[in-house]
Design a protein around this nucleic acid. Structure first.
Length: 361
DNA sequence: TAGCCGTGGCG
DNA sequence: TCGCCAAGGCT
């Protein structure tokens, strides 16, 4: 048997982590939080990027990451910042519990570990906002601990490689087991990033570039030609449409009325304009019951059109009302006046920016 | 454990 | 257009 045939047979037998690492050495992406050459990765930078990258694309994260690292270069600096500053800097990035946990985690690193990220998976896992995935990611990338972070990319790569028929999320334990079985004895950080790069650039959800894949030969789904059908997913039901009203109160001196949402839950602790609850059976004829109260009577004008927004678990349609008030009007309890010219610096989620844009255009 | 929690891009 | 999906964690 000649060398070429032997090589082919070996590759078909099983996926070789060395092949993936060789591919990574040639094709890895250049990313701001990634160490260059032999430089060691900064645990703070790795952690910050991993939190931001949870369910969020590299492109979206880029400017936020740069802004945070410039403003708070160390975990100690971030821990010392007011939570409100962190929330404002995070506004627009979504999943705001991440920002609250980011701040809590920075403080915990300072208080529990003297401002140094711990080098053990269990200690990392115990920090706010760090789950099994992020502990493995920070542990392997920053400290080269033998762990494999299993995210959506790795799930896709592994389910295709082994043609796992079980549907998500039930298949997760099996995926973790198989991913761990691939872990090489050295370079676990590079291996983790290689798996994610492969999933992001080659083993994509649709139209994977199998011809360029270092694991094309051992990939069972590829051999069968149904690689795009992995990972298998159980059909999910969609959330029901909800409705509500929002109130944009403008004062003659160029201020708009804002308030803060409750600490927990949907858009927790973020800023909003006053509004009604959001319900499936919202009755528009009673919308003004939810309007902020001022002394004297006030004309709320219903604007044409609506503002729509789709959350993970339900679509929302808001009717917007607008009113104009004279200078000197005090804000109702629980609300405050904010300069329209300064709205960019407020902790306003995208939904509320849509509402304000609708009312101010 | 399954539902909750944002946003932007893409086919 | 619209459903899917992206480096998940918490409860």
């Amino acid at each position: 048997m000649n060398v070429a045939v032997r090589t082919l047979k070996r590759k078909k037998a099983a996926a070789d982590p060395a092949d993936l690492l060789a591919w990574y050495d040639r094709h890895r992406r250049v990313l701001p939080w990634r160490a260059r050459g032999r430089a060691k990765a900064d645990p703070y930078a790795v952690w910050l990027s991993e939190i931001m990258l949870q369910q969020t694309t590299v492109k979206t994260v880029g400017p936020y990451y740069a802004k945070f690292l410039t403003r708070w270069p160390t975990v100690g600096a971030l821990a010392a910042a007011p939570l409100d500053d962190v929330l404002r800097a995070w506004a627009g990035l979504g999943y705001y519990a991440r920002a609250r946990n980011l701040h809590a985690c920075a403080k915990a690193v300072v208080e529990r570990h003297g401002g140094i990220f711990p080098r053990e998976l269990e200690a990392l896992r115990a920090l706010p906002g760090i789950g099994e995935y992020t502990a493995a990611a920070v542990g392997s990338i920053a400290f080269d601990l033998p762990a494999v972070p299993v995210d959506g990319n790795v799930e896709r790569v592994v389910t295709r490689l082994f043609a796992i028929e079980e549907a998500m999320p039930a298949a997760k334990p099996e995926i973790k087991r198989l991913a761990a079985s691939l872990l090489p004895p050295h370079r676990s950080g590079d291996f983790a990033q290689a798996l994610m790069d492969l999933g992001a650039t080659i083993c994509s959800p649709k139209k994977p570039a199998c011809a360029l894949c270092p694991w094309s030969e051992p990939c069972i789904a590829r051999a069968r030609g149904d690689q795009e059908t992995f990972p298998r997913k159980a059909p999910k039901r969609e959330g029901k449409q909800r409705y509500g009203a929002a109130f944009v109160a403008l004062r003659a001196d160029g201020c708009v009325l804002l308030r803060q949402r409750p600490e927990k839950g949907l858009l927790g602790a973020m800023t909003e304009v006053p509004g009604s609850d959001w319900a499936h059976d919202f009755d528009l004829s009673t919308a003004l019951d939810a309007a902020p109260r001022f002394r004297g009577k006030l004309q709320w004008r219903k604007l044409g059109g609506t503002v729509t927004h789709v959350f993970t678990h339900f679509p929302l349609r808001l009717t917007v009302y607008k009113a104009e008030l004279p200078r000197g009007t005090p804000a109702p309890k629980g609300a405050r006046w904010a300069k329209v010219s300064g709205l960019a610096g407020e902790a306003l989620p995208t939904l509320m920016r849509k509402v304000l844009a609708h009312a101010l255009e």
